[in-house]
Design a protein around this nucleic acid. Sequence first.
DNA 1: GGCGACTGTGAATCGTTGT
DNA 2: TACAACGATTCACAGTCGC
Lengths: 377, 377
Amino acid sequence: MGQTAEKTRARLRAASEAVRGELPLGRILDGDCIEAMRTIPDASVDMIFADPPYNLQLGGDLSRPDGSHVDAVTDHWDQFDSFAAYDKFSREWLTEARRVLRPNGSLWVIGSYHNIFRLGAMLQDMGFWILNDVVWRKANPMPNFKGTRFTNAHETLIWCSMGEKAKYTFNYRAMKTLNDELQMRSDWVLPICGGQERLKKGGHKVHPTQKPEALLYRVMLATTNKGDVVLDPFFGTGTTGAVAKRLGREWIGCERESLYREAALERIELALPLDESAVTTMQSPRAATRVAFGALVETGWIAPGTVISDKKRKVQATVRADGSLVCGADSGSIHGLGAKLQGAPSCNGWSYWHVEHEGEIKPLDAIRQLYLLATED
Amino acid sequence: MGQTAEKTRARLRAASEAVRGELPLGRILDGDCIEAMRTIPDASVDMIFADPPYNLQLGGDLSRPDGSHVDAVTDHWDQFDSFAAYDKFSREWLTEARRVLRPNGSLWVIGSYHNIFRLGAMLQDMGFWILNDVVWRKANPMPNFKGTRFTNAHETLIWCSMGEKAKYTFNYRAMKTLNDELQMRSDWVLPICGGQERLKKGGHKVHPTQKPEALLYRVMLATTNKGDVVLDPFFGTGTTGAVAKRLGREWIGCERESLYREAALERIELALPLDESAVTTMQSPRAATRVAFGALVETGWIAPGTVISDKKRKVQATVRADGSLVCGADSGSIHGLGAKLQGAPSCNGWSYWHVEHEGEIKPLDAIRQLYLLATED
DNA sequence: GGCGACTGTGAATCGTTGT
DNA sequence: TACAACGATTCACAGTCGC
C-alpha cells in the first residue's frame, strides 16, 4: 500500500471523527424533521430509517403533511392538490436525508400503497439506487371488516444506496445465519407490534403506528455495522433508538410531538444494551483471516507435486512449489486455472479443486479450514 | 324505482351490447399495444391485466457459483433509454387503458421494484384509485448468487378502480372460499411458472417471463364476473387468454411479437374450460410454517446473550444477535455448531440445544412451538 | 416401479483491491 | 482510471438416469 493512500485514509478518518463530535448522538431533535435535519452536518450518518406519515386519502377529514387542513372536497383537483402537497413535503425531507448520508450510507423507507409508490419513484428520480423492496408480511393483520377488498396484510420497505455505483453495507452472512442458513429473502414475516412491547398510557396506545422492534432489528443488523450512526427523521416512540441501543449502534431522532419524545426517551432508557459478544455476528470469510493457497503448500498441508482434481475427477492438475497449478500446457493460480479449464469467466478455486484427505475427496476449502483451526492465535 | 331510471338502464344495456359487437373478442391484435388499443371503443372492457416491460437495466453477464450462465431478460422490448422514456411509454398505454375501461371496470398492473413505483405514482396521478397492492411471494425464486442483497423473492401487483367513487367488482365470497374460509390477504404465495405449464420450443422457453396461470386465475376470479371482457395489452404467450377461457371470461390481447402470438393461440386452443378440479388445485397460503432460529432472537423470545446448552448441560453456547452461537473459539448456526461440537456430520439444533424456560430446561423446539402458537393467524 | 443422486434453471438492476 | 488478479457465491423444483 502506498504511503499516500495511507495518509489519505488517515485524514478521512480524522475528518470523520471530527464530524462525529458535532453529531447529536443519542438525542431526539425537537421540531419539524426538515428543520431538524438541517442542523446535521453533510455526509455524517451511515443509515437512515424513515417511517413518514401516510395520512393520505383516509376519507373524512384530510390534512396535509404540514398539518394544514384540506377541504373535504374529493374532486379530482383536490386529489391532485393533496398529492402535490405530499410530494413537496417528501422531496424536502428526502433532500435533507440525501445530504446528511455518507456516500456509502443507505436509506430505508417504509410505507403502504397510499404513499410508497410516490416515494419510490421520487427516490429513483433523486438518484438513489434501489437495492431491494422488502415486504413486511404481517403475521396478524387487521381484517378487512367490510369485505370489499383483500385484507391489507403487508407494508413495503424500500432499501436504497446513494447511487448506482455507490457502496453500501450488507451483512450477508449475518442475515443468512439469522434465517437458518438460507439466504434472507425480500419478504419478511413478522408479527405486528403488540403485547408488552406496545407502549401504552392510560390504557391507550401512545402511538398509532408503533413499529415492531423485530423489524428494526433486522434492518439494522443487515445494513449497519456496530458503532454506525443511524438517523430516524420520524422517530415517534423511538423503536429505532431502542433497537440501536440494543445493537450497539448510535442513533439520532427527529420528532415534533413532545408526547412521543417523552415516551421514547423513557423507553430507550429502559432498553438494555447487548454485551459485546452478543452483538458480534457471523463474519463473511472475506473479513476473516485470509489464507493464500501458497501458505498451505509452504507449511506442508499440501505437498508440492500433489495431484488435485475437480469433484468428478475428470480434470486433474499438479501443485507446484509456489502454489501454482499445472495441467498440460496450462498453468495458473487455483482460481485462474480453474476458470481457464472450464472456459468460465471466473472460478473459486477453493471450492472447485478437490484433494484426497484421509481417504475422502474434499474441497481445498476444507483443508483451509483445518489450517485455520490449527494456526489460530 | 322510477320509470326513467329503468329506461336509462335499458338504453345503456342496449348500447353496451352494440359496443360488444364491435369488440375483437378472442383475438390477439397485432402490433404496438398503444396503436392496437386505439381500435377499441371507449368504455368497453371490464378489466385490464397488464404485465408491461419492467425496464430491468441489467449490467453485464451474471454467472452462478457453479460457473453456469444465467439466462437473463435481455430482450429488446425491455430496453429503455431513461426513466423519462419509460414514463412516456407508460403514460401513453395507461391513457388508452383508462379510455377503454368501463366506469366500473378495474385495472391490474404487475411489476418489480424497477418499475412498479413509477407505475403506481402515475396511476394515482391519472385519477385511478388504488384498491390494494398485492404481493406475489414466489415459492421458488432465483437466489441472489453473489450474496450482495436480499433474495428478490416477490413481485408487486397494483389493483385499482377508475376513481375514488367508482364501483368495482370484488368477489369476496369466492376469495374466502378459495382461502380455506379465511379472508384472502394481500400476499399470495404461488410458485413461478415452470414444469409442464412453461411453454417451450426446441428445449428453450418461448417467453422469458411467462406468468403462472394460478396468478391470473386468482386475479380474474376475484375481480371479474363470468362473461366479462378482459383486455391484456402485453399478451405475451397468452396466460390471460388461457385463464379467461377456463373461467368463462371473454378476452382481447395485444402483442407485437409474432412468435408469442402463435404460441398463445395454440395454447389457448388447447386450454379446457374450467372443471371443478381446477379450483381445488389452487395453493393454500396455509402451507407449513417454517421458523428460523433467528426469528426467535429478533422477536425477543430468546435474547442475544442467552446461554443455551445440550440436554445434559455439558456443552454450553451463547446466542448472538444474528442467531448464531458461539462456544469458545467455535461459532455457527444452531445446527452447524451442534454438529461441530459433537463431531457429527449433521445435527438438528432444535432438539439438541436446550434453554431454561420457566424453571425448566427445554429444547429450542418447545420455544418454537410457543412462538408459532403466539403468531398464528 | 421406487428411490436417491445428479443436473438444469427461473423478470437479477449480483465484487473488491491493488497496480 | 482502466486493467488484472484475487476469490466469494445458490434455493426450490422438475426432470433424468441408474440401481
